[in-house]
Design a protein around this nucleic acid. Sequence first.
DNA 1: GAAGTATTTGGACGAGCGTCCAAAAGATTC
DNA 2: GAATCTTTTGGACGCTCGTCCAAATACTTC
Lengths: 199, 199
Amino acid sequence: MTTAHLKTAKGTRTRDRMLESAVVLIPRLGWSAVTARVLAGHAGVRPGIIHYHFDSLEALLAEAAVGAVREALEFPSRQLESGISLDEGLHMFLAALDEFAPDEPVNLLFVETFLAAARGGVLRDELAQVLLDFRTRTARWLERVGFDGDADATAAVLAAAVDGLMLHRALDPGLTADVAFPVLRRALGITAATEGSSP
Amino acid sequence: MTTAHLKTAKGTRTRDRMLESAVVLIPRLGWSAVTARVLAGHAGVRPGIIHYHFDSLEALLAEAAVGAVREALEFPSRQLESGISLDEGLHMFLAALDEFAPDEPVNLLFVETFLAAARGGVLRDELAQVLLDFRTRTARWLERVGFDGDADATAAVLAAAVDGLMLHRALDPGLTADVAFPVLRRALGITAATEGSSP
DNA sequence: GAAGTATTTGGACGAGCGTCCAAAAGATTC
DNA sequence: GAATCTTTTGGACGCTCGTCCAAATACTTC
């Protein structure tokens, strides 16, 4: 269902509120524990309204999740294209790790969305596209900044490693950005001699 | 519920069959889509029997998942302790990546279990323990094999990276072990000069 | 093979699920 | 302010959920 039928600002606000609730509830409860009634309760509406604005609950969750992931990657993408260094870029990648809070595990939204997408449907293709786009932009940044290995492969592993770290962080609070930084730094081929190691 | 009440071989077999079904169904359908009736159907039993052998469906899934993860890590652990090299070890880590099949995504079991554990409960502590044990054994192997950086941090990032790659692999079939190998090789501080690069 | 224990069945229970819809309420247009 | 269109409600639908339990069955012990 498109947004073409939305004629009033009120309708748009209600729709957006439901999308925002989904983004909050998916990581907190898990994808399939976000039921129509729970979502509606959180958004302050009645369950019936879901099918006025969306084709189904699943469509709502998919739109919310892929939208949130796309939005979350937009800022890092722009940063990479603003001419930052290897070290600065890596710091940015890992910043999300330390934003983790046990009661608001927004980082798990990525993992939940991946898992939901892995089981097929429209979500799969859309998320794959968003991810591919981000990886490409990361690879171009690596080349621009003088990385001389396989930029595409390195970008892919870097993105996967960050997601994996988010997942492991949920079980190990000690797995902070500080711990991961030197290791991934090596994966990017940065030795102490290559760039300033003490900023 | 313990297994203390099991007096006959038949009872044990039924119990085991349910655990095995859970291990198959969790990655295929997703953790919370494995219902009592679906599981019973796959195991060839009636749903009621679940609560004879287990306290609840959730307890069944947790025991099955943590058991499968522990078992899956047992072989790699032993391999690491058998004196294999850095390159051989890394190959082993990445081997799971290429065992991925879209219709039998067993690698997603790890991610599903992590996600379920992240939401708390007994599973959380048990899985954290299994993971910590594996990471420690990996770190000792790194030291033994001559790795001179922070072995614990490197082991943690390596484990997280492999899980992240499993997740991303589900959306990108091109993300094979061959692609990831050179990048993680660098993270382990292996340069072409350190060890033989062409085996 | 009878007695006793372990296992399994089949059906039921209340609760919650996604979805739908006629009617009410709100907003906009003339 | 009447008419029209958009948005929201409240209640209902059929279905599946996890769990429970008395009765039936299988197995072991003597």
